[in-house]
Structures are given as structure tokens and as C-alpha cells.
Simulated scan of single mutants.
Amino acid sequence: MAVRSMLRDFVRGWPMLAALGAGLVLTATAAGVSGTAGSPGGTGAGGVVVGAVLAGCGIAALGWAVFALRKGSLVAPRSALAVSLGVLGAPGALLATGAAAELGVAVLPMLAAGLFAIVVAVGAAVEIRRLRRRRRTALPPRRPAIGLVAGAALVAALATPALAGTAAGELAVPHGELHGTGHQHP
């Protein structure tokens, strides 16, 4: 039982970190959807709607993650479960119908956002179950720093290539190249 408790404490902050990753990936993906402001692919109304939904989901995920990290526990787990399942389902529908390719939505970032949404959904479901078993305990949950560091490393390992696969990532300064030092002397 002690190992199970230690593991639970180790991964308790991962849904919040996954929500940060999902928020970053979804907002970057929204920026590259054809038809959204500043995107290279046209002005289609479908693209505007999809871009707005992706951006809204991304901003909501970022806000929830910051609030939950600040509080130190999952906030509104039922709502988080419902939204994360929606974030998982909507992009899945885009990819399954082929609309993603028409709108310029990259597959890798959407898969990464889906994986992040699964982590949030699992964390929210576990929290809901915990709350049903025993009403809130007086002691706040422990979150060992090593668990947060490991979770952050996993999020970074998944989010970095996903962000690079978005239109915003493709337009970013090429990594590993210097474009001048800014210290030019005559």
C-alpha cells in the first residue's frame, strides 16, 4: 500500500502539467489553421470556427492548469473530465473525417494534444473517485518535487516536437542557427 501511495503522490501533478502542454499545442495549432487570422491558407468559415475552438480549448487548458497548479490540486475535476474528453474527441473527429488536412491542421500536434487530454481525463477521473470515497481530507495532497520534474520532462518531450510540427513552429527561427550576435562592431 505504501508503494501505491508513493506512486499516487509522484504523479498527482501530471494532469496539470499535461494541461499546460495541451494548451500550448492547441493554441499553436489554432494559429496555423487555414482561414484563421494570420494563417496562410485562406479565409474559409470552417477554418475560422475550427481555429477559434482550438484556441479556446488551448486557452482554457492553460488557465485551468495555472489555477490548479497554484491551488495545489485538481480544480473542478468533473468539468476537467468533460472538457478533456471533448478536447480528445473534437480533434479526433477532425483527423478521422479528413477535415484536418483540408484546414491545415497537423496530425502530430493533434495526437500530442490528445495524449495530454487523456492524462488530464485520467487524473480527473481518479480525483472524482477519490472524492467519492472520502470527502475532502484536511491535509493537502503531497506532490514530491521529483514527480513534478519527471512530469515536466515528459510534457516537454512530447510538446516540443508537437509544437515544431505546427505552422507556428515551422515559422519559428531555425533551431541551432545564429542570426547575428547583435554586437556588430565597425
Rank of each mutant, 00 (worst) to 15 (best):
A80C: 02
M110W: 01
V155S: 09
A99H: 06
V3N: 12
A2F: 06
L94F: 13
A100L: 07
V75K: 12
A96P: 00
L62G: 07
A145I: 14
G63P: 01
R134Q: 10
P186G: 15
T137L: 15
L62S: 02
I128S: 04
G32D: 04
P174E: 09
T166A: 09
R132W: 11
V25T: 03
L171N: 14
P144W: 13
A157M: 04
V155R: 03
V50F: 13
G35M: 02
S73P: 00
G104T: 10
G169S: 15
L54S: 05
R12L: 09
L131A: 08
A2D: 15
V105L: 10
A106D: 06
M1R: 09
A157Y: 06
G38I: 11
V173M: 12
G176W: 13
P15C: 04
L95A: 12
H183V: 05
I118D: 05
K71T: 11
G23F: 11
G41E: 14
R129F: 02
R132Y: 08
G56A: 14
G63Y: 10
L85S: 05
V53T: 00
L154Y: 02
R143G: 07
E170C: 05
A101L: 13
G182N: 07
A145V: 15
L24P: 02
I118R: 01
G23K: 07
V25D: 08
A55N: 08
A22L: 07
G176D: 07
R4M: 08
E170F: 10
R135L: 14
A113E: 06
